[in-house]
Design a protein around this nucleic acid. Structure first.
Lengths: 233, 233
DNA sequence: CACAACCGTGTCTGTTGGACACAGTGTATG
DNA sequence: CATACACTGTGTCCAACAGACACGGTTGTG
């Protein structure tokens, strides 16, 4: 119940003094993290077993525990490594900068679908994740918004990107490929059978690709932010 | 790999003909669902074990499998039961109706924090969930927006509510209570130590409660939608 | 050279979801 | 009224999982 974050934070921020005695380590947290990311990319987060990661590295499962406290901390390392360094945004107006930032986040989430499941809840943040947030906040610096408004704006944009990406992802954190149409068809049949119960939905029925949904919501949000900025001047 | 949704859909929509022979069942899917929701509310989604649910009902674990194909389908049943019937919205303008809808969703998510983890990805939808979407779309009926725009709007609003709620929740799907301040303090210390790496974030540092973030983003989104509606007239 | 620190491994435990076969029970059909 | 059969709930079993712990081998330091 104690939920100790200190181990994870120490690893994420590289705060472990390298040992001077003993044999040289053949393994290290980064090697393990990279291997684990490869596993999660290919087979999803539930398939991420200490066993599987160890086999990919040709080591024993228990060897990993020498360098990583446990599975939870490994996932935290994976998240910060997978998001990578924050994108460099060309200096321009706040709106194109935030748009570019959102698109960069979008592509990272599509490249590592398991990130959506791994980034749930308040949790220990790594240096890369913090840098992403910093870059987005920086785009809003000359807008007249105060600190809280800037943070809330970034949070809203990031939440929208994440929410949209979740439509493309299975609960396991792999990108859905086949079988998607099957589910859609079954749901369409059910909706049609009960169409009197869902009149508005039946009337509005339309095909909206995730890319369209992403752009639509992002435009609405940034329109609203633009209105707020205008009212501050 | 086949990922058969038909079982879950049949259960969700009540499509199983009741047997005519044999003894009367002491158990049924709804009883199991209610008990499972109680477990998840109290101890989170990972603690939701067939064993635990069975004990709460004073039955054996394997008895549950008579009525529910497996854990995944049980979770699907729990989701539709927990969201409950869609909220009845007083007939008024689209904006207060959507706001009320978002607040209703917000309260449901706070009452059942595990819903956030259970509603990830595209998955079999139940009748209640579909009704929620229908009611939100209905609020946008006289706005001049087309079907795709209405759906995208609803999706954006729902995504924002969900994203905000996730800040209040642990990855396990329980509401965080204590220990939260501890993590915040540790992150604040780290940010301060590396403040030169995160200048914008350091400058913008502010305390924003989740309620404020919810209202801020919702206002921005609806401002943007209002602008789109105005441009259609 | 001896010791202490460190590394990777093998063995073990508790818990999980789920398969399977079985004995009891009640209804429908002869 | 009797029999067959479908359905219920149970006990036993298994594989996969995260992690604890103790051991033997390795390497730097006093």
């Amino acid at each position: 119940m104690a939920e100790d974050f200190t181990d994870a934070l120490a690893l994420l921020w590289g705060l472990k003094p390298p040992p001077t005695r003993g044999p040289k380590a053949a393994l290290n947290p980064e090697l393990i993290t990279v291997a684990a990311i490869a596993v999660a990319d290919e087979q999803g987060l539930p398939a991420l077993t200490m066993q599987v990661v160890a086999e990919r590295l040709s080591f024993t499962k228990m060897s990993l525990y020498r360098h990583v406290p446990g599975r939870a901390e490994l996932v935290a390392l994976m998240v910060d490594h997978a998001v990578g360094p924050a994108p460099e945004l060309a200096p321009s107006a706040w709106r194109p900068r935030l748009t570019a930032w959102a698109e960069a986040l979008w592509h990272v989430l599509l490249r590592h679908p398991w990130l959506l499941a791994a980034m749930v809840g308040r949790r220990p943040l790594g240096p890369n994740e913090l840098a992403w947030t910093d870059h987005a906040v920086a785009a809003l610096e000359d807008t007249g918004l105060d600190g809280g408004e800037r943070l809330d704006t970034v949070f809203t944009v990031a939440g929208h990107v994440r929410g949209t990406a979740q439509q493309l992802v299975t609960p396991e954190g792999t990108r859905r490929e086949g079988g998607e149409a099957e589910l859609d068809r079954a749901l369409a049949v059910l909706l049609d059978e009960h169409r009197e119960r869902y009149p508005a939905l039946t009337a509005a029925l339309a095909v909206s690709t995730p890319d369209q949904a992403l752009a639509f919501g992002l435009d609405r949000i940034l329109d609203g932010v633009a209105g707020l900025i205008a009212s501050r001047r």
